[in-house]
Design a protein around this nucleic acid. Structure first.
Lengths: 334, 334
DNA sequence: CTGTTAGCGCGTTCAC
DNA sequence: GTGAACGCGCTAACAG
């Protein structure tokens, strides 16, 4: 292994000068800088990160804790985070907490042990309910989930508004009995439920809700049971997430029910498959890559300016109307 | 910050004894061990990982370099890797090389700088063609991609066999003109092409192939162009990956072409949406989670036993016949 | 502008 | 079974 001392000797300088050059500090002559660079090149020197981190008490590692990377939403978010992180010379550690507070806590402690520069976190309801930024020795940016009174940097969709607009679209399309299948384990699901309720109240309609764990399998099971119990179908069914939407579609297919003929359908997250099923499904699209990018940019800014005011970035969902929600079916799909 | 010295003082012992207890070494009395544990608990001591890594020259970090985490295949593989890694007290660094040799090399160098214990890698064709295990200062397990003569631990599907079986199924179903859209950027795509060619040769049929970059967008564009150029459709179209399959379906929908009525369809990767489109699509399913799990288990074994013989784990794909490939359509979908 | 040097916190040798 | 002491490679404070 070639050490910084070897470079110093080779360049005829001291370790201090080499260190200064490597960390881009001022106070080194151009001549010295050239010689250091040449020696680094000649010897193939690579800094020892462990030593650097031990000495400087700093780290270029970020943590990213999501519920499940298999969720397309988090997949896209994490991809954005990693792109920006690596472009800024930082590393990222990805963890799946599976909505389990124990796992979440485990990873949070791991982040502390790693002495990370910051964390992007999609918190469980449990953590969010008692969230306080000073609980952590590193800056945290929340993503996807955040209450209106949470004292934290955060990036998220305007969930209540998005749900309202989605539901109003259904109401405007002539649907009256609208069922809402939502993930009860997260703040996001609850906020979307609220939007649903407000939209229904505004139209004088009666809510029909089904809480469940936000997985495809649970949604499938819940929908299947729902279909068995209810001989009369609602006019429309809405899913509060893409994972849930998939489960609903699976159950509908199994029961040989068509949309929108038997029941209209809509959901969150514009996953690729929603355009490819027939008919295509109306969704509220989230700008997932932008959410991830905004989150890490917020985090990097916070790391650079620890004392800056708390910021919250709220993004707007985009309604994409397709055939699954229309009462009078047009001739042609998009 | 509480250091190991603080624990030693609190327990009335030396740092050496504390270190021994913490690393589970023998040569410490039961009494001392108890006292150390109690002090650790009382003081909330956490070992400093940077110091430990600097001193021990070892790391509990693994690298995972895939082409794109947004590919459901790698998503599932990475999830498996992370589950096993964290269960073994290791960390993992995830990187997306995007099939670009430069990025791949960048991340490989980063892994060296991090002094990782090992790497799981889905190599570009470029790297694979000149792969030699001694090029890296850490053990490497290849995943998804590997030539038959590559000298490396690897976990992959029996691609040629899987493609053959998929194509034979189509031939047995009465299809004669079978087009193959495959990703030309990876060894995997090429191996599947070979299986396709062998199956066709065995039946005395003429190949009809289309090479492309393995993304949904490229597949969509290629299929669209294909449909414009060819007034007469083939009997069947096959995609060499799930991402490509999605692009094909998008183009088919756009052109208002039905499967299997207008053209039969099949592909690789049993993604959830393939069951939910109508009709459901015949696929060659890969045991993705098992592939990831096998890869990290192989890596951990290699780390524990650096000199052990090179091992290759070849998994078998599972053909899942659904309506998209059947000539005489059954009454009911599954 | 440059060099010397003292630790960062830990693991491990070597004495006892 | 236990403790003292050294050094992993680097950064930063300080002296020149």
């Amino acid at each position: 292994m070639v050490r910084i001392l070897d470079v110093a000797k080779h360049a005829g300088l001291s370790v201090a000068s080499v260190s200064r050059v490597l960390s881009g500090q001022p106070g080194v002559s151009e001549n010295a800088r050239k010689r250091v660079m040449a020696s680094v090149e000649a010897l193939g020197y690579r800094p020892n990160l462990a030593a650097r981190r031990l000495r400087s008490q700093r780290t270029d590692t970020l943590g990213l804790i999501v519920s499940d990377i298999r969720n397309p939403y988090f997949m896209e978010v994490s991809r954005a985070v990693e792109d920006v992180a690596y472009a800024n010379g930082m590393r990222v550690m990805l963890c799946n907490a599976d909505e389990e507070p124990e796992k979440e806590n485990f990873y949070l402690e791991m982040m502390r042990d790693e002495n990370v520069a910051g964390v992007i976190l999609s918190p469980t309801l449990d953590l969010l309910s008692r969230y306080h930024p000073t609980d952590f020795p590193f800056p945290v940016v929340l993503v996807d989930r955040c209450e209106s009174d949470t004292d934290a940097d955060a990036v998220l969709l305007d969930n209540t508004d998005a749900a309202q607009r989605l539901i109003r679209h259904l109401i405007d399309s002539g649907h009256r009995r609208i069922a809402f299948f939502y993930g009860a384990a997260s703040a996001t699901g609850r906020q979307r439920l609220q939007g649903y309720q407000e939209a229904l109240a505004g139209a004088g309609l009666t809510p029909l809700t089904q809480a469940l764990k936000p997985t495809t399998d649970e949604a499938f099971a819940a929908m299947r049971e729902f279909l068995q119990k209810n001989t009369q179908l609602p006019d429309a069914i809405v899913a509060s997430s893409g994972l849930i939407l998939l489960g609903l579609v699976q159950a509908l297919r199994e029961a040989n029910l068509r949309f929108p003929e038997d029941v209209a359908l809509a959901g969150f997250d514009d996953m690729p498959w929603t355009r490819v099923v027939t008919p295509a499904i109306t969704v509220m699209a989230q700008p997932t890559y932008d959410i991830g990018r905004s989150a890490i940019e917020l985090l990097l800014a916070r790391i650079a300016q620890p004392a800056q005011a708390v910021r919250r970035i709220v993004l707007r969902g985009e309604l994409r109307v397709r055939r699954s929600s229309t009462r009078n079916q047009p001739q042609q799909a998009v």
